[in-house]
């Protein structure tokens, strides 16, 4: 399992360089559409490690085709320059009746499957690339339908799933989605996310994917129990932290992940060669 860190804006640049230099991470994941005004060649030279590209605001379920074609044309420049390990995006709602959500919305898995499948096919065709779509940290009970939805989506579109382990933990805590229901999705996925979460401020408490806390014990237990399903050749796991960004805290969590998954195959090879 290769470990990575999410790079969303320049203020963590020095920290990410240190994470790479001290070998706490093996690759870096750009939130790529934050950097659409940066020269692709500058991005390609930014970090001396493999790169993943994570898309935040394609809004591919809502945007019209010309907008997506233009977005994809710019994305392609970065794909060509950075040769990423993967390209990933989100299946969620950014707005309702033209009005923006500030806390993004989950889709209805049972009634929107065909719509989403067609949009996924169209979006992959426009980008010219297999895309890995991230699961949502479900709150409402409809989230229990997510594992079957993603399993079917992978089969029928050739898309991948960027499986967010802590989102699945939130979904388990909030609406009881069994971890076991994700087994086939995890087995078919190569790229993963993990992060901390916190409880809502009011009861009945729900768990929110906040990327601002240490990894929770139940997240680590989930990873331990499914370790052999997660880990596979070429697998990646990005540790996401968007707030409360403290180097020592991040390294502590990365060490937990390294202890669990061991040194990545690729790194073992590097170490053998250098020895």
């Amino acid at each position: 399992m290769r470990l990575g860190f999410n790079f969303t804006l320049g203020d963590t640049y020095d920290m990410v360089q240190r994470l790479i230099a001290e070998r706490h991470i093996d690759y870096c994941e750009f939130l790529i559409d934050n950097f659409f005004c940066v020269d692709p060649n500058e991005l390609a030279k930014a970090f001396d490690c493999p790169i993943g590209l994570h898309i935040m605001y394609s809004k591919f379920l809502e945007a019209d085709r010309p907008t997506l074609v233009d977005f994809a044309a710019r994305l392609r420049d970065y794909i060509d320059a950075l040769n990423p390990i993967y390209v990933s995006d989100h299946i969620l709602r950014f707005s309702h009746e033209g009005r923006a959500f500030f806390h993004l919305g989950e889709i209805d898995y049972s009634t929107e499957y065909e719509f989403v499948r067609d949009k996924v096919l169209q979006w992959q065709e426009i980008v010219g690339q297999r895309i890995h779509f991230e699961n949502y940290p479900s709150i409402m009970d409809g989230g229990r339908e997510a594992p079957a939805f993603f399993e079917r989506l992978m089969k029928e579109t050739g898309a991948g799933v960027l499986f967010d382990a802590s989102n699945a933990v939130c979904s388990n805590r909030n609406c009881g989605t069994p971890f076991e229901a994700w087994r086939n999705v995890i087995a078919g996925a190569q790229h993963f996310h993990v992060a901390g979460y916190r409880q809502s401020l009011i009861e009945p408490f729900i768990s929110l994917d906040t990327h601002a806390e240490a990894l929770a014990p139940d997240t680590m237990s989930f990873l331990e129990n499914f370790r052999s399903v997660f880990d596979k050749p070429g697998a990646t796991m990005t540790y996401e932290r968007d707030d409360q960004i403290e180097f020592d805290d991040i390294v502590a969590d990365l060490k937990l992940l390294r202890n669990l998954f061991g040194v990545a195959e690729e790194r073992r090879h590097d170490l053998a060669v250098s020895a």
């Binding site: 709602r93 309702h96 009746e97 959500f101 919305g105 989950e106 889709i107 209805d108 898995y109 009634t111 929107e112 479900s138 709150i139 409402m140 009970d141 409809g142 989230g143």
Partner: peptide, 9 residues
């Protein structure tokens, strides 16, 4: 209130 979608408005 089964899904998020029920709550969008």
């Amino acid at each position: 209130s089964r899904t998020d979608r029920d709550l969008y408005p």
